[in-house]
């Protein structure tokens, strides 16, 4: 049981760590796929926005 709990805990911690790393190194689509001239200041919370 201890091994099972440790494995599940490790999986959760690893998943959160990966999420944090990917969120750090990746740009939002609203930034990655627009030129600076076409980029709006607040991309909002729609499909292309950060939220």
């Amino acid at each position: 049981m201890k091994v099972f709990v440790a494995a599940v805990a490790f999986a959760v911690v690893a998943a959160v760590a990966v999420a944090m790393v990917l969120n750090t190194i990746q740009e939002p689509s609203s930034v990655a796929f627009t030129t600076s001239g076409a980029r709006v200041g607040d991309s909002g919370h729609n499909l292309i926005g950060p939220g």
């Binding site: 091994v3 099972f4 440790a6 494995a7 599940v8 490790f10 999986a11």
Partner: peptide, 14 residues
Amino acid sequence: AGFERFIHWLTASC
């Protein structure tokens, strides 16, 4: 062994 079971359950739970 414990490490083998840990890897099994890590993969299985995911």
